[in-house]
């Protein structure tokens, strides 16, 4: 039986890979099955992880009738399917948007903004890095001398590139240019890293096909 399910996985893997040649019925079928399974899984996950413990159990076992409010709000989402009363679905939408907006303000402020700024408030030069370079003259130790400088001054140049209240001309043009250069290094590194991650994933799929399924390697 295990071979049957492994073969299903193998055939579906080949079907998805077949898109590299051209769009074809095998890929289309796999794509639609994928969407169906994914949507069904999300539905079941919400049912077991949210609907039952957060709504059904409090309502039926603990008698928390106040939970009828989120139940009514959630059900109101389905008024979208009816033309005349579709506007009622804005109420539950507002609950979602309001909660996300409130959590985003606090989450981004405390989790990203403050922490990232705080992490960049560091000494520009660390004498220990110069000592490390003089004792062990490697290229990486040389680069390490500039690490903190990049995290402080470099970050300011990156942020300045996005600051459009001042025209980027004269000396400021060079500041923005330094920021652009750092951004380009970042984008390049991000691109290279993404490609390599996908390649690693591809090797994993080939390993599955040739070793785990077909057992020919």
């Amino acid at each position: 039986m295990e071979l049957f399910w492994t073969s299903i996985a193998g055939i579906l893997t080949l079907s998805v890979l077949s898109f590299l040649y051209a769009d074809n019925p095998f890929y289309k079928a796999a794509e639609h099955i994928f969407i169906g399974i994914a949507a069904g899984y999300v539905f079941c996950a919400q049912f077991h992880n949210v609907f039952i413990p957060n709504l059904w159990t409090p309502l039926t076992q603990h008698g928390e009738l106040i939970m009828l409010i989120p139940f009514a709000l959630g059900s109101a989402l389905f008024t979208r399917f009816f033309k005349g009363i579709g506007w009622i679905s804005r109420w539950p939408m507002s609950v979602i948007i309001g909660t996300y907006a409130g959590l985003a303000v606090i989450g981004f402020a405390s989790g990203d903004l403050v922490l990232q700024v705080q992490a960049s408030l560091i000494p520009v030069f660390v004498p220990a890095t110069i000592d490390a370079f003089t004792t062990n003259m490697t290229f990486v130790n040389f680069l390490n001398i500039f690490t903190n400088l990049l995290f402080t001054v470099g970050l300011i140049t990156v942020l300045f590139y996005f600051f459009f209240s001042l025209e980027h001309k004269g000396g400021l043009k060079h500041v923005a240019l330094a920021g652009t250069t750092l951004l380009m290094i970042g984008f390049g590194a991000g691109y290279g890293y993404t490609v390599m991650t996908r390649i690693a994933l591809l090797f994993d799929r080939f390993y599955f096909l040739f070793v785990e399924w077909l057992k020919i390697a």
Binding site: Q116, G154, L182, I185, G186
Partner: peptide, 15 residues
């Protein structure tokens, strides 16, 4: 380092 600096700048802007 340079990649983290660029990401940090973008993250601060996005925040």
């Amino acid at each position: 380092v340079p990649n983290a600096v660029a990401q940090r700048g973008i993250l601060i802007g996005a925040a």
